[in-house]
């Protein structure tokens, strides 16, 4: 990569390519009821961009999750079911 391209703002998708996951087949986080959730906050603050809108529906793609807990803090157990991936799956940090 040239220096020029290194000094270019990267999109989130490009940043995510730097990470490694062993994705669990079971989803460990799930939106149960989006009513009353701070949707804009979830979309902007989830560092991995797991939250997005499909029409009026809030989607959560658990595959790129780093299990940080921010969405848990911004919601409640009746709106977002939140747990950890099993068997060591999920994000595998190599440096951090």
């Amino acid at each position: 990569m040239s220096q020029q391209s290194r000094l270019k703002q990267l999109k989130l998708e490009e940043l995510l390519q730097r990470d490694v996951w062993d994705v669990d087949e079971d989803r460990h986080i799930e939106v149960l009821n989006q009513e009353g959730l701070p949707i804009k906050a979830l979309i902007i603050l989830c560092p991995m961009g797991c939250y997005s809108m499909a029409g009026d529906k809030l989607l959560m793609s658990y595959e790129g999750c780093v299990e940080c807990g921010t969405c848990r803090v911004l919601s409640s157990p009746d709106k977002i079911r939140w747990s950890y991936p099993r068997s060591g799956r999920g994000i595998q940090y190599r440096y951090t």
Binding site: Q3, R6, L10, L16, Y93, R94
Partner: peptide, 13 residues
Amino acid sequence: WREADIIEYGGRM
């Protein structure tokens, strides 16, 4: 760090 590559990205609380 002008010639540095990003090798990891993530978040935590």
